[in-house]
């Protein structure tokens, strides 16, 4: 759970940097009403939690069906870790980094009550390298509970960044926070790159 929490915490900042300003006006439309903000934010987070729980279940069952032999169980996820980790590192160092936020599609939703749920859906289904890494991790866990815990760690880590969203307008030096967040995402990528390499080497030795 530790590494998924760290991944969530680091990639959450980059996610906020990309999506925060798209989501902020929708979640905080009637910012004078604190109760409304709390309800909308809770709906948004609960939607994400449910989606992640579904993903944890699917990923684990997929892993059980596909990664049967111990060698495959180490080497294939190891390769996947490396690919997604390189994507994560590339995102943090790329000069042409300008990903668009999938939550933009919320503009098409007319029912205001559904907005936080749609935002939660689009945000958690916006497949980024960090989510792919967690999917890989969930698919290789020994038990379903461990898969849930991995996703829970990722959910908690990434959600922490959304909690101060109501204060977003007042935060100074946003650019600095964004820069540090992007670099932290790259570092999380490096951690999983090493994890992938050790998985493969371990798999070859044990195989």
């Amino acid at each position: 759970m530790t590494d998924s929490l760290i991944l969530g915490l680091s990639s959450g900042s980059a996610c906020l940097a990309t999506c925060g300003m798209v989501m902020f006006p929708y979640l905080m439309a009637d910012s004078a009403n604190v109760k409304r903000i709390a309800v909308d934010l809770s709906l948004f987070l609960i939607t994400r939690l449910i989606i992640y729980a579904i993903m944890a279940t699917l990923a684990w069952h997929f892993g059980q069906a596909v990664f049967k032999s111990p060698v495959v169980r180490n080497i294939v996820p190891g390769l996947l870790y490396i690919i997604f980790a390189v994507m994560l590192v590339w995102y943090s160092i790329s000069k042409s980094r300008n990903p668009s936020c999938p939550a933009k599609m919320v503009k098409t939703v007319s029912n205001k009550r559904l907005v936080p749920i749609v935002l939660g859906l689009t945000n958690s289904l916006g497949f980024c390298p960090a989510l792919f890494i967690i999917l890989t991790k969930g698919s290789t866990e020994r038990t379903l509970v461990q898969s849930y815990l991995a996703f829970l760690g990722f959910f908690v880590g990434s959600s922490l960044w959304f909690l101060p969203l109501p204060l977003a307008g007042r935060i100074r030096k946003k650019e600095v926070i964004k820069n540090i967040g992007i670099l932290a995402t790259g570092l999380a990528g490096v951690i999983f790159l090493i994890k992938g390499l050790t998985n493969i080497i371990g798999g070859i030795i044990n195989g």
Binding site: L9, S10, I180, L183
Partner: peptide, 15 residues
């Protein structure tokens, strides 16, 4: 951008 890397490392190692 790299100037901010020690802060990213700091956050990661503290956590």
């Amino acid at each position: 951008l790299w100037k901010w890397m020690p802060y990213a490392v700091l956050i990661m190692v503290i956590l």
